[in-house]
Amino acid sequence: AEEIWQQSVIGDYLARFKNDRVKALKAMEMTWNNMEKKEKLMWIKKAAED
């Protein structure tokens, strides 16, 4: 689920960090860890469908 979420937001994060992939990935990891369980559930369901 986290991978699907990352694939959907990586472009936004890379743009925000001027294509600094290391910073973008760290920010994504922090965002994922801070997400509410119900927000993650949507992505977990999406992962299950694929």
Rank of each mutant, 00 (worst) to 15 (best):
A1W: 08
A1K: 02
A1I: 04
E2M: 14
E2F: 15
E2V: 11
E3W: 14
E3N: 09
E3M: 14
I4P: 02
I4R: 09
I4T: 07
I4Y: 15
I4W: 10
I4H: 08
I4S: 06
I4A: 10
I4D: 03
W5P: 00
W5L: 00
W5V: 00
W5Y: 04
W5Q: 00
W5C: 01
W5K: 00
Q6S: 09
Q6K: 10
Q6A: 13
Q6F: 09
Q6W: 06
Q6Y: 07
Q6C: 10
Q7F: 07
Q7W: 08
Q7R: 13
Q7S: 10
Q7H: 09
Q7T: 09
Q7I: 09
S8N: 06
V9S: 03
V9T: 03
V9P: 01
I10D: 01
I10K: 04
I10F: 10
I10R: 03
I10H: 03
G11D: 14
G11F: 10
G11S: 11
G11M: 12
G11V: 12
G11Q: 13
G11C: 14
D12S: 10
D12V: 07
D12R: 05
D12L: 07
D12F: 08
Y13C: 03
Y13S: 00
Y13E: 01
Y13R: 00
Y13T: 02
L14V: 03
L14H: 02
L14A: 01
L14I: 05
L14F: 03
A15K: 12
A15H: 10
A15P: 05
A15M: 11
A15T: 12
A15F: 09
R16N: 06
R16I: 11
R16M: 14
R16F: 11
R16S: 06
R16K: 11
R16E: 11
R16P: 01
F17H: 09
F17R: 01
F17P: 01
K18L: 10
K18W: 09
K18F: 12
K18E: 14
K18G: 14
K18M: 14
K18V: 07
N19M: 12
N19A: 05
N19H: 08
N19I: 02
N19Q: 11
N19F: 09
N19C: 12
N19R: 04
D20E: 05
D20F: 02
D20I: 03
D20S: 04
R21A: 12
R21M: 13
R21C: 14
R21P: 08
R21S: 08
R21E: 10
R21K: 12
V22H: 08
V22W: 08
K23M: 13
K23I: 08
K23A: 15
K23R: 13
K23L: 14
A24R: 01
A24I: 05
A24P: 00
A24W: 02
A24S: 04
A24L: 02
L25S: 06
L25K: 08
L25N: 07
L25T: 10
L25D: 05
L25C: 12
L25W: 07
K26C: 08
K26Q: 14
K26L: 12
K26M: 12
K26F: 10
K26P: 02
A27L: 05
A27C: 07
M28G: 00
M28N: 01
M28P: 00
M28V: 02
M28W: 00
E29G: 06
E29A: 10
E29Y: 05
E29I: 09
E29R: 08
E29N: 08
M30P: 01
M30S: 10
M30C: 10
T31S: 08
T31Y: 14
T31C: 06
T31L: 06
T31W: 05
W32Q: 00
W32M: 00
W32C: 01
N33R: 09
N33Y: 07
N33P: 02
N33D: 10
N33I: 10
N34Y: 05
N34G: 08
M35K: 01
M35R: 00
M35N: 01
M35Q: 01
M35H: 00
M35A: 01
M35I: 01
E36I: 04
E36V: 04
E36D: 14
E36Q: 09
E36T: 14
K37R: 12
K37I: 15
K37D: 15
K38P: 08
K38G: 11
K38C: 14
K38T: 13
K38E: 15
E39D: 11
E39H: 05
E39P: 01
E39N: 04
E39R: 03
E39L: 05
E39T: 04
K40F: 02
K40A: 01
K40S: 01
L41T: 05
L41V: 06
L41H: 06
M42P: 08
M42R: 15
M42S: 12
W43L: 03
W43C: 03
W43G: 03
W43D: 03
I44N: 05
I44G: 07
K45V: 08
K45A: 14
K45G: 09
K46P: 04
K46F: 09
K46M: 14
K46A: 10
A47C: 04
A47D: 05
A47I: 06
A47H: 06
A47K: 03
A47G: 04
A48N: 10
A48L: 15
A48W: 12
E49V: 09
E49H: 11
D50P: 05
D50G: 13
D50E: 14
